[in-house]
Design a protein around this nucleic acid. Structure first.
Lengths: 293, 293
DNA sequence: GAAAATCGCTGCATTATTTCATCGATCGGT
DNA sequence: ACCGATCGATGAAATAATGCAGCGATTTTC
């Protein structure tokens, strides 16, 4: 049995189609099919049912998947631990975060860092979905959610309040919304995942029931750009809204603050090149946080 | 990272030389070297020190080996469990035992079984060392030591006493040794692992201090052949000595009996073809044990 | 309901990998 | 001290794996 076949088998378990698995693996779809065939031949068992809606696991396949997942854990552990022993200041570091944090903090931080450490190559993945650090899909994550996994090391890099902002143009045309009116007569820019969360949606703790939803965005950066272009009123982290030169509405009203976490796996934490990237990003946040308190 | 590289890495850990690993893997030595190089490149770490006395693990290599061993466990588990779901009466079954048990019990049992089940191919490995059933180095083992691993299923197929035997020719030339004289004036055939065990060596509970060691053998079958050829007195399981037509000396003296275990892994136990091989071997032992009690 | 997209399969050309053969070095035994 | 055996490295040939493109079938979309 070729152990590597278990890797493509797992990808196929997750993607359910040869093409999907081939895409994530970066190989051709024909290769996935042939490797699966060779695995089934080696094991003497049929792992998948070829249905019209893709590949679905047989009973034997489910058993195999459980064991293959264990193999994956061990393989990821191997890579993480070996990476953690690497003291060289060169190589790839993968960072995942939101596009908003990426543009304002991570990218400037890396730009500065590379002056001192040109050997470090950062692969920046701006993604709404949380990549799995345990599986070594990334080395560093900047998140607003604190993960619970004890294998992951978290470090708070900022605690920010949000506030509602609008552009100067918007205020000139529409005025400032009246507190307590639930944004009657105003255009709103909302963060899509917040709408989808099922919780009651508010801006600066004010319900939005009488406002018009002008736009919903799937990322914080897009909200900022929309507000800056005068599409409406939006909630933006205080330091970012101010940095964008937007007008802060209702300066007296405080929103509950939220935290920004920098997350790494304990195995890669002491890798030299990961370490410096972490420090560079944390420093970028510290510079903004201290200036706006 | 190619998971299969971890497999050849592990073989190299065990064998310490490229050639040795290549032998156990059934590939060329150059392949092992190149696969290791590709693994080290993928991990960005040096796993082995190239010393004059072969390959030895670096610190990073030891860490990698621990994780690779976990991968191996999972891979073996996968194979065992999939095999366990195979209901077909054809395919390979691997049996490991001593050469003595193999010639007198396993081979006749398989010969009989294949009349009914010609699709079953048995790979018989006569070996002094215990193969690891958990790693799926074999499917069935016939042993005199009862393993403690709870994953392994043991079944006692015989309880035999030993006795000392000699050939008719030997007795004609040398007579029968006198009990209580520690085999003074007699030639002895001994089982080498017993000598190496460090315990006081006896034949039929009689010390051997005054006997001459004519030959030591690394397997029970060789002891039987040596005794049958008149080389000396040797201790042989009662049913086997009688089956060989040897003369049993001191029939009144009883040696403590020992057990013969048939061992399988719980995952493969219910595989149809493994099941029938187990039954066939057990039956072969039962036939002899019942006839000699 | 038609058209476009996606799917898996297969034959063929290309690329990657493995083996084979050979070399120099080292080690152990006489 | 020499000879034989074994080791790892390397270049060339053989082999195996992969990518590519076209095919029919099925599903999704407009």
């Amino acid at each position: 049995m070729n152990w590597d076949d278990a890797r493509i088998f797992l990808a196929l378990c997750r993607e359910q189609t040869l093409r999907g698995a081939a895409r994530t693996l970066g190989v051709d779809q024909a290769t996935v099919g042939r490797r699966l065939a060779s695995l089934e031949r080696a094991l003497g068992a049929t792992l998948f049912l070829r249905t019209s809606s893709g590949y679905s696991l047989t009973a034997a396949g489910e058993v195999a998947m459980a064991a293959a997942l264990n193999m994956e854990d061990s393989a990821a552990e191997l890579q993480r631990q070996i990476l953690g022993m690497d003291g060289r200041m060169s190589g790839v570091v993968r960072v995942t975060t939101t596009d908003s944090f990426a543009t304002d903090f991570v990218i400037p931080a890396i730009a500065r860092l590379r002056q001192a450490q040109p050997g470090i190559e950062v692969q920046l993945q701006a993604s709404t979905q949380l990549l799995n650090l345990s599986k070594r899909e990334a080395d560093i994550a900047v998140r607003t959610l604190k993960p619970e996994n004890p294998e992951l090391i978290v470090r708070r890099v900022a605690r920010w309040s949000s506030a509602i902002f609008a552009s100067a143009d918007y205020v000139r045309a529409h005025g400032v919304p009246e507190p307590g009116t639930a944004f009657a007569g105003h255009d709103l820019v909302l963060y899509q995942p917040y709408l989808d969360s099922g919780k009651e949606v508010t801006l600066a703790c004010e319900p939005i029931t009488h406002g018009r939803i002008a736009m919903t965005c799937t990322s914080g950066l897009l909200v900022r750009r929309a507000v800056a272009n005068g599409l409406g009123v939006g909630e933006i982290p205080l330091p970012l809204g101010e940095a964008d030169g937007l007008l802060r509405l209702w300066p007296a009203r405080a929103c509950p603050p939220y935290d920004i976490w920098l997350v790494t796996h304990k195995d890669v934490r002491h890798t030299a090149r990961v370490r410096v990237v972490i420090d560079a990003i944390a420093e970028a946040f510290a510079a903004v946080s201290s200036s706006t308190s």
